[in-house]
Amino acid sequence: MNLVIVDYKAGNVQSVQFALERLGVQATLSADFETIQSADKVIFPGVGEASSAMAQLRSRNLDKLLPTLKQPFFGVCLGMQLLCQHSDEGDTDMLGIIPLPVKRFQTDLKVPHMGWNQLEQLQTPLFAGIAEGEYAYYVHSFYVPLSEYTIAQTSYPEPFSAALQFKNFYAAQFHPEKSGPAGSQILKNFLAL
């Protein structure tokens, strides 16, 4: 399989690549249009701050390319938020692929939402073999509300989108690459889509 990780100097690229290696899959890191377009599947990682990530994408013209992709695509953490319309973080216009907002947690609980929390209401083959209530690792201060594109949810304290699907674009707010065997299974499920 020709698997490409979008390379725009995101923080967790290495961890995602290692997680795929543990599944026996070698992924190519690239920002090159042709390489990404010809991939069977594309993974879009991300940690850090929204406006600087968007600036990195724009500087490589990836903001033009990514919305045109047709193959199975998987945005992880900030990679999920970047697919949305707009983020409260730095009042940033995102890629606008999924028509949803990204909001800051307004809660008395600690922010960032950091640690292991449960996945509920699991839908789509992305979660094949994953039990309701399985734990995943999160670290984020912004979230995507529930919507018709939500395919898994987590509560902190209100339910929010743990994962999304919009056409060929899948996305997870948690870190499958850091979520133990369950996370590996979710990555494996994406590779099997």
């Binding site: 543990r22 690792y137 850091k178 065997p181």
Partner: peptide, 11 residues
């Protein structure tokens, strides 16, 4: 650190 990241799947 690189070697650890390569082999473990928790943060």
């Amino acid at each position: 650190v690189r070697d650890i990241a390569r082999h473990i799947d928790i943060p």
